[in-house]
Design a protein around this nucleic acid. Structure first.
Lengths: 175, 175
DNA sequence: TACGATTGTGAGTGATCACTTACTTCTCTG
DNA sequence: CAGAGAAGTAAGTGATCACTCACAATCGTA
């Protein structure tokens, strides 16, 4: 990975997360990265290839984040860690940009990457089962739907206080 | 409102909801509506003016939907009707397109129309107060965040069963 | 029916899009 | 240090973009 290739990836992540994929021109990415436009197409097959490279890099982040939850044996700790995912996703600028891009792409490409969430959903279902819930699979889905709602609000509503909401939900779930 | 102007609005709503605002060209709208591209700019100042006209028309829908909840005196009925909003939003194709467009625009333009939700949030806070909740304003926000999550899933996840989720949440809230 | 206003068309406009090409500069290795 | 391959550039390419303009058809009304 050369220095300029890295600059292209970082500039593209930031711009795609801010303005969307289709609305960001390759010339804009090149300008922001401080390279010639042609270089983008030397390193990536096309504009979509650039997006794929960003997503692929980010999926490593997701594996680390989710892994910590999936292998947690204590059911209450599973709930706690899931709720705290929200804070972890935005701990630094590049992470926040990546997760924002993930949500943005869902709407731009109309594709919900449900398979990515499957292990998390299973871990939550398992946790709710252990905690004696009547409909653990629905309870798990409610929690995940809630997380989607929290992400929507956090990324789009300037004054939304994510911390307060997560704390409140923790007390609701008793964790 | 001439017949062709109406056709432009309907075609644009469908295309904007499907492919997004920026990614839909005016020539595509004209083709779908069966009119010349120039006519779009005779009836609307520019492409954004066309979008504004669609949003404005749709806001009447929102007022009707929300009004029924805001003026409901019985607190449990407020919760019930709020949860049932989800089903009402997608009762017919044009309504579903409009609400999908609303969510899509939030992400495309990065602007959460929080003021639109204010009366609903107040009504919910009031309902949770009457029902004796400790933190009614947070409880109201949790419910609205959940609705955002449900919308995200319904519009983006093909196999998402909205009815089951709404029914389950109704039992959770005891309504 | 005459005529002004509105509605509608189709062929433009320059700007910008993703991407290519011809070329130069750097870097690494035998 | 020669030379090959990788990295990088600048100036293009045709296609498509939002939008305009000159003109024609249609309409409401006096």
């Amino acid at each position: 990975m050369t220095e300029k290739k890295e600059k292209i990836l970082i500039a593209a992540l930031e711009l795609f997360a801010q303005e969307g994929f289709k609305s960001t021109s390759t010339s804009k990415v090149a300008k922001k990265a401080g390279v010639s436009e042609g270089l983008i197409f030397r390193h990536f097959e096309n504009k979509e290839g650039l997006l794929e490279a960003i997503i692929k890099e980010g999926e490593e982040r997701a594996k680390i984040l989710f892994g910590d939850i999936v292998f947690e044996p204590e059911p209450k700790a599973v709930l706690k860690k899931t709720l705290e995912l929200g804070s972890k996703m935005i701990e630094n600028k590049e992470d926040a940009d990546f997760w924002k891009l993930q949500y943005k792409m869902k709407w731009e490409l109309e594709f919900y990457g449900e398979h990515k969430m499957e292990p998390l959903e299973l871990a939550l279902t398992n946790a709710f089962t252990k905690l004696g819930h009547d409909r653990p699979e629905l309870e798990a889905r409610v929690l995940l739907v809630n997380m989607d709602g929290l992400a929507t609000r956090y990324f789009l509503q300037k004054d939304f206080d994510l911390g307060v909401m997560i704390d409140y939900m923790k007390t609701k779930y008793g964790v």
